[in-house]
């Protein structure tokens, strides 16, 4: 796997690579992206995060508000979700106010959009970690990642600190257990990412194709089995469905 060596591009530069000149329709406020742009000449709604920001209650509400607005004002417009967030801030006021419910609300808005015919495409552009990825990005119809993105539950050092399992042990195991490895490529092996896009790819063309090929059928367990990173999930799910049908 190639390690990114180039300097981290700015949020605007990443957006420009995806949306060209139409990037002007996207506003960035406190590292939260909302707006409209075009992909291959066709309008898309954009929501997301940048700068590895922490998603708090307010950010979740602003994302949700934009999804609602899109459902009302731009029916069936595909929604592109960009993810560059380090997670939710472990803040006691946020928790007291029910951050989980704010995230649940954002997910409900996205579900409504899906039911009303909006395609949902995620591109992990930077950090796509833990709760920040779960609260909107992983809820898309299809999920993509730039190869420079940091995708996964958490880096091995952090995992080691919490589980008290020495990092070298986890490092060694991650060679045969992609779920322990951190990054876009191993996440794709698990089926969590449909395809990883590299720096040399024409991202606008890739995004257009992704929107065209999107399906609301969750295919992640199938992908995980096919790619060998998550071999058990699909069969166990099928077993539950088969045993319960008897």
């Amino acid at each position: 796997m190639k390690k990114p060596t180039q300097k981290k591009p700015s949020a605007r530069a990443v957006l420009a690579r995806m949306f060209g000149a139409t990037v002007e329709g996207i506003s960035i406020e406190k590292s939260v992206l909302t707006g409209y742009a075009a992909v291959d000449g066709k309008k898309v709604c954009v929501i997301g995060t940048c700068d590895g920001t922490y998603i708090d209650n307010g950010a979740a509400l602003r994302l949700a508000a934009h999804v609602i607005e899109c459902i009302e004002r731009a029916p069936k417009t595909p929604i592109v979700m960009l993810v560059d967030s380090a997670g939710q801030e472990p803040n006691r006021v946020a928790e007291m106010l029910g951050l989980a419910s704010y995230f649940g609300h954002l997910l409900s808005c996205l579900e409504l959009a899906r039911r009303k015919g909006h395609k949902l495409i995620t591109v992990a552009t930077g950090q796509a970690v833990g709760g920040a990825f779960l609260c909107y990005g992983m809820f898309a119809d299809r999920i993509y990642a730039l190869d420079s993105a940091s995708v996964g539950l958490m880096p091995i050092a952090a995992m080691s600190a919490v589980t008290k399992i020495p990092a070298p042990v986890l490092e060694k195991l991650s060679k045969t257990m992609p779920s322990l490895e951190f990054g876009a490529a191993p996440f794709a092996l698990l089926g969590g990412v449909e395809e990883v896009w590299s720096a040399s790819d024409d991202i606008q063309a890739k995004l257009a194709a992704a929107i065209a090929a999107s399906s609301t059928e969750d295919n992640r367990a199938e992908l995980g089995k096919k790619r060998g990173g998550r071999k058990l999930a699909l069969d166990i799910r099928k077993k539950v469905l088969a045993e319960s049908a008897r």
Partner: peptide, 23 residues
Amino acid sequence: LHEGSSGEIAIAETMRAIFECRA
């Protein structure tokens, strides 16, 4: 955590299934 990102994806898949029920 011991199973890394697999559990995270499973939670996301279950969320989709929950909303299938709700629909």
